[in-house]
Each structure stands twice: as C-alpha cells, then as structure tokens.
C-alpha cells in the first residue's frame, strides 16, 4: 500500500526504509536476498545513489519514490495506491506518472490506484472505474470513458477543461427526451452556426480557451493559441459530436 503522505520512517536511512518490510516477522527474508531486492528496486526508481541518506534528507519526489519502493520490494501480487502523487508539484508528478507506468509495465503487477486527478486516470490506466457515491457507474479503458461516457457524472470526470453542460433546447436538433446536451470544448465548431460573445480569452500557451456567453449560458471552448479574438468579439458556434442526457443524467445519444 502506498499512501498519499510518504509515511517514511524519518529516523532510518533510505536503505533501512526499503529493508523494513522485508525484515518484518511476516516475511523473514534472508540477508543476501534483502540486499539484492533493495538494490534492484532502488535502481528502478533511480534512488540507488541516495541509499545511505537519511529519509529526511530527501526531496519530496525522492521521498515519494522511496515510499513506492517500499511497496515494490515486497513483490506483492497487487499494489494499492492512494493518491500517491497528489502531494508533489506538477513537474515531478508528470515525471512520476511515466515512471509508475513503466514500473507497472515492467513488473506486470496489478495496480489499483485511487485518484481524483483526471490526468493521472487518463494517462496511466489501462482501465478506469468511475465511482459515484460508492457506486461503480462506468468501467472501461480511459479512451472509452472519455469518448463514450454513460452519464453526466462520468462525462464530467474526464476532460480538461470540463465538458460544457447546457439545456438541450439551446441548440436545435436535440433527440426526444433529451434534457441536457454535453459538449466537450473541442466539440464546438467555430465560424458557423449561431452567435455567442467572447467573455474572456485565456491564453495557456499551447492552446487558448475562449469563455463564451451563448444565449445566457457559459461555454468554454478551445481555439488556436494565437487567435486574434478578444473579449467582446462575437463568434459563431455549432456543436459537433454532442452527447445528450435525459432528465436523470443518463446518456441517451
């Protein structure tokens, strides 16, 4: 089990921290095997040069790697991870996402990973289970959950910026029984359709987000990073690949 807080033993060195689970009365691993396993895991996690440092003398990312390492040395059949990356800063999180995925691919072990971060869910998982108040509402590969959400709830879990939800009547052509239309920001075609006004232009570098006021509804869409649009301009928009949901929030089309 890997916890959100690193939960290392601060009075021990990295090596002693890694050895700890192996030395437990439950496992009683022989000495040379402990040595070998610790070395292997440290190499995989790229902390082998820090083995003799005190656990407190590490950076946040290194601490988290050690705590993951402590789970790895035991070679369990299943890893349980509770938001192990959420206390790290963005850069490191991106790095460790790839690292964890690589470790998982290399060891072939089963990993059950709890997260509220949709980027982690999408990038790392082979399968995603979406939980709503303790009930599993959708299960499948991330791509399927993203492209084919079963409900409003599942649709809002993945995607950044978040899916736009509007009354179905805002656009023409809603199917029977549809109460809500769900539009991913990239599923809005610009330059045709009905007019909305630009409230704010948010330049993120690689993409620019447009905050639109469309028939008194807020819509966020993405556009070219160097768009000349500015607040107050009018834009025509039309939905493409929209999702429709019924009154209970379940997907119909």
């Amino acid at each position: 089990m890997v916890f959100q807080q690193y939960s290392l033993y601060p009075h021990l060195t990295v090596r002693q921290n890694l050895e700890f689970p192996l030395k437990s009365p439950l496992l009683r691993t022989p000495k040379d095997e402990i040595e070998r396993k610790v070395r292997d895991v440290a190499e995989v996690l790229r902390i082998d040069h820090k083995l003799d440092n005190k656990a407190t003398a590490l950076s946040g990312g290194e601490m988290q790697r050690v705590s993951i390492g402590r789970a790895l040395v035991r070679n369990p059949s299943i890893y349980l991870m509770d938001e192990p990356l959420s206390s790290l800063d963005a850069k490191l999180r991106a790095e460790l996402r790839i690292e964890l995925k690589r470790i998982q691919a290399q060891s072939g072990a089963t990993l059950l990973y709890v997260t509220h971060d949709q980027v982690e869910a999408m990038t790392m998982a082979t399968h995603v289970g979406v939980l709503d108040h303790g009930r599993l509402v959708q299960f499948g590969p991330p791509r399927e959950v993203y492209e084919n959400p079963v409900s409003i709830y599942a649709a809002t879990r993945l995607g950044q910026p978040r899916i736009n939800l509007l009354p179905a009547s805002v656009f023409a052509g809603a199917p029977e029984g549809a109460r809500t239309i769900g539009l991913r920001p990239e599923h809005i075609v610009q330059g045709e359709g009905e007019e909305g006004s630009v409230v704010r232009v948010e330049r993120l570098g690689d993409q620019t987000r447009l905050h639109l006021d469309f028939k008194q509804h807020q819509i966020i869409t993405v556009t070219d990073p160097h768009t000349p649009l500015k607040a107050g301009d009018m834009v025509q928009i039309r939905p493409r690949n929209a999702y429709y949901f019924d009154a209970a929030g379940a997907r119909i089309v």
Binding site: R97, I98, K101, R102, V119, M122, T123, M124, P142, R143, Y146, L158, G159, Q160, R184, E186
Partner: peptide
C-alpha cells in the same frame, strides 16, 4: 518510448 492519452490529444515521448 511512452504515450499518454489525454482525451483529444496524446503526449508521445
């Protein structure tokens, strides 16, 4: 060496 799915886009290392 790696791909990360992000919805409409993916990050390829």
């Amino acid at each position: 060496i790696a791909t990360e799915y992000l919805g409409t886009t993916q990050i390829v290392s």
